[in-house]
Simulated assay, not measured.
Amino acid sequence: MTEIRNNWTKEEIAEIYHTPLLDLIYRAATIHRENKDYAEVQISSLISIKTGGCPEDCAYCPQAARYNTGVDVHAIMPKEEVIAAAEKAKAGGASRLCMGAAWREVRDNRDFEKVIDMVKAVNALDMEVCCTLGMLNEAQAQRLADAGLYAYNHNLDTSEDDYKRIITTRTYDDRLQTLSNVRKAKISVCSGGIIGLGETVEDRISMLKTLSNMPQHPESVPINALVPVKGTPLADQPRVSVWDMVRMIATTRIIMPKTVVRLSAGRTEMSTVEQALCFMAGANSLFAGEKLLTTPNPSFDTDMAMFELLGLTPRKAFKNGRPQQQTEILETETSL
């Protein structure tokens, strides 16, 4: 079996990334197939529980209040609508529901209490619950864990050196601190990045080095292709090459062998053949459903047809067990 390492150098990662493409895919596919469940794909559904009006200045994001992108601002979604969306996603094959809020950080207010209730409600449907709510402190992370949160998404987006070009309203260290708080609460970590921001290959390699050298690899690493949105500073960026996506996915699979690698934003621009190459290179997760927060995405039916064609199967919820807090809650309830 492939050794799990947390001491990758930029030079080693660069050598892997620049391997001749067919050799790179073969190496990543070989490592992926060391896992007997390589044909299983974890399906997540992503909904926006609070849309637009964000004070951050992320150059790619249509939800930033300072950009005129045509996104309607909506207050936090009622819990009943979230439950209905979760049930629809589960019926479509999703094992995880990710709830996103356009916040800079979590605040200890009524809206956070509503999120806690949502987490409990979706967890009761026997789905993995993920949130992406911006920065949060240790106490907030623990509250989410106690409510049954399975995973927390907080992407690094790009390299530390490139970060200030994309976002000025928070720092790279802010991102890393939130991930540390999530890890301390024993919540599964979901953190990846976006390619096509105008970054260099060296930036991509540096971001992967940061992720792979964490004391514990993120359980999930989303690889996103930028979806340019009119009104944002990155509106005129060219479409990312599928070969760049394949290289990123394959390199991620090689240096983080046990991590779930998610083929994320940008799939609407990819053919079934292009997506098949990504799965061959080690992707074993995707977002399903017609919208990712505010950007288009293939429908459940389209993805299920692709799964049948490629011989892929949806991964069941809690494949690797529940976080410690959820297990304790269930054991307590069972003993009552």
Rank of each mutant, 00 (worst) to 15 (best):
V273S: 14
G193L: 03
Q216Y: 13
L234M: 06
L277V: 07
I249W: 11
V242R: 05
P298S: 10
M248D: 11
A235L: 01
V221T: 11
F307H: 09
S285Q: 06
E199N: 02
K316P: 00
S271K: 07
N320W: 14
I205M: 11
P238L: 11
D303G: 07
F279A: 01
E199D: 13
A185Q: 08
M270V: 00
E199I: 00
T295A: 12
L226G: 11
R239H: 12
R267Y: 06
S212R: 11
R267I: 03
D236F: 09
G192S: 05
K258E: 15
D236E: 14
D301M: 13
P228R: 09
F300N: 13
G311Q: 10
T259D: 09
A265E: 05
M270E: 14
A276C: 01
P314M: 11
F318A: 02
S285H: 03
C278L: 13
G196I: 03
A317Q: 10
M306A: 08
N284P: 05
L310N: 01
P233I: 04
C278T: 10
A276Q: 05
P228H: 03
V260E: 15
V273H: 15
T210Y: 09
M304I: 10
S264Y: 04
L286K: 06
D203P: 12
T302G: 03
G282I: 04
I254C: 02
I195E: 04
I187P: 02
R253F: 02
R262D: 07
L310V: 00
A276R: 02
T210F: 12
L286D: 01
E199M: 00
D203V: 01
D244A: 06
H217F: 02
G311F: 08
I254L: 10
G321P: 04
S241E: 14
K186R: 12
T313S: 15
K230R: 14
E219R: 04
R315Q: 15
L263I: 14
L234K: 10
P314Y: 08
F307Q: 00
G193S: 03
Q216C: 07
D301N: 10
R262Y: 07
L292C: 07
P228M: 09
R247P: 09
E269W: 05
K319N: 10
A225W: 08
S241M: 13
N224A: 05
V227L: 10
K258N: 14
R183A: 13
M207Q: 01
P218S: 12
A283W: 04
T200Q: 11
K319R: 15
T252Y: 11
V227E: 06
L277I: 09
C278H: 11
S191W: 08
V246Y: 01
G198P: 04
R183C: 00
V242Y: 14
R262N: 06
S220R: 09
G289R: 03
K184L: 07
L208R: 06
V273F: 14
P233Q: 07
R262V: 01
V240P: 10
P233E: 06
S188A: 12
T210A: 05
L286F: 01
G231K: 14
N284F: 12
A250H: 08
C278E: 04
A281T: 13
F300C: 09
S188M: 13
R315W: 01
T251L: 08
T259N: 03
I194C: 10
V261D: 00
Q275Y: 03
G198R: 08
G193H: 12
T232D: 04
N224L: 11
P257Y: 07
